[in-house]
C-alpha cells in the first residue's frame, strides 16, 4: 500500500462512522447528554485506530519522535473521551451504569466495555509512572502493549455487540482496522522482545 494513501484512508475510516452515528435516527429520541456520551464512545474507538499508527510512526509527516509526542496527547484525549462516555451514560441512566461497573448488567457488551476501560486506565497510568518509577524499557513496552491490546480487542467486542447509533458496516470496518493497526505496530516494534530474550 502506498504510504501517501494512508492519510485519506484514515480520514475516511474515522469520518464515515462518525457521520453515520451523528445522523442516526435514534438521536431524535435521546437528550443531549446521552448523544454526547454516545459520540464520545465513537470518538474513543476512532482514537484506537490512530494511536498505533502514531506510536509506530506509520503516518507520513509524523515519524516516530513526533508521532510519539502526539500519541501522548491523543492518549490523554482518549481518557477524556472514555470519562465523558461513562459519565454521560451515568447521568442518562445511573442504575444501568452502576450494573455495568459492578459486572451485574444484563447486557453482555457492557462487560467488554468496562474491561476495556480499566485496561486503558492501567495503560495510561503506566505511561504516567514510567519515568517516576524508572521502568525498564522492555517491561514498560510489554506492559503498555499488552494493556492497550486488551483495550482494543475488548472495545471492538463492546462496540460490535451494541445496537446503537453506529452503522454496522462502518463500525465493523473501524474495529477491524484498529485491531489490524495495533497488531502490525506490536509486531513491527517487537513489543514482546523482553519475553523472547528470557526464553533463550
Amino acid at each position: 500500500m502506498r504510504r501517501n494513501l494512508l492519510w485519506p484512508l484514515l480520514a475516511a475510516a474515522i469520518a464515515v462512522p462518525l457521520a453515520v452515528a451523528a445522523t442516526s435516527p435514534l438521536l431524535e429520541w435521546r437528550d443531549p447528554v446521552y448523544i454526547a456520551a454516545g459520540l464520545a464512545g465513537v470518538l474513543a474507538l476512532a482514537i484506537l485506530l490512530i494511536q498505533p499508527l502514531l506510536a509506530a510512526g506509520y503516518l507520513p509527516g509524523l515519524p516516530r519522535p513526533r508521532g510519539r509526542r502526539l500519541h501522548r496527547w491523543i492518549g490523554a484525549a482518549l481518557i477524556l473521551c472514555v470519562v465523558v462516555h461513562v459519565g454521560g451514560l451515568w447521568l442518562t441512566s445511573p442504575p444501568d451504569v452502576i450494573d455495568a461497573l459492578l459486572f451485574a448488567s444484563p447486557t453482555p457488551f457492557s462487560v467488554w466495555g468496562v474491561v476495556a476501560m480499566w485496561a486503558l486506565f492501567a495503560a495510561a497510568l503506566m505511561a504516567a509512572l514510567r519515568r517516576p518509577l524508572r521502568m525498564r524499557p522492555g517491561i514498560w513496552r510489554l506492559g503498555h502493549t499488552a494493556l492497550v491490546s486488551l483495550t482494543v480487542i475488548c472495545t471492538a467486542l463492546h462496540a460490535m455487540l451494541i445496537e446503537g447509533t453506529m452503522g454496522t458496516a462502518s463500525k465493523a470496518a473501524l474495529c477491524a482496522l484498529a485491531i489490524a493497526a495495533t497488531a502490525k505496530a506490536v509486531i513491527d516494534l517487537r513489543s514482546y522482545a523482553v519475553l523472547k530474550r528470557r526464553d533463550r
Binding site: R30, T107, F109, I162, E163, G164
Partner: peptide
C-alpha cells in the same frame, strides 16, 4: 420502544 443502552 427504541433501542437504548445497546438493546431495544
Amino acid at each position: 420502544i427504541v433501542p437504548v443502552f445497546g438493546q431495544p
